[in-house]
């Protein structure tokens, strides 16, 4: 069976402390493609390194939509 690693769909960088509106980092619009590729690769590596070894007791996920 082929090992499907999946992919990262979207990233929201940083944290928004602004309590009035949604803030977006515009760093990605200022970096060149190589820098962005490194950033995404780094994120993926960090996620894979933090891989869970055992499933939690809670496996159902949040409440299903109505």
């Amino acid at each position: 069976m082929r090992n499907r690693r999946g992919r990262i769909l979207k990233v929201r960088l940083g944290v928004n402390p602004n309590s009035s509106s949604l803030g977006s980092s515009v760093l990605f619009l200022m970096l060149g493609s190589p820098a962005l590729a490194i950033l995404v690769f780094t994120l993926s590596t960090l996620l894979r390194t933090s891989r869970r070894r055992k499933p939690d007791a809670e496996t159902k996920g949040p409440r299903l939509p109505v």
Binding site: G6, I8, R48, R51, R53
Partner: peptide
């Protein structure tokens, strides 16, 4: 880095979820 990362189902499985 502080971030939220959207991943697909296969990615979640590959991380052990």
């Amino acid at each position: 880095p502080a971030s939220l990362v959207w991943v697909d189902r296969d990615y979640m499985r590959s991380l052990g979820y």
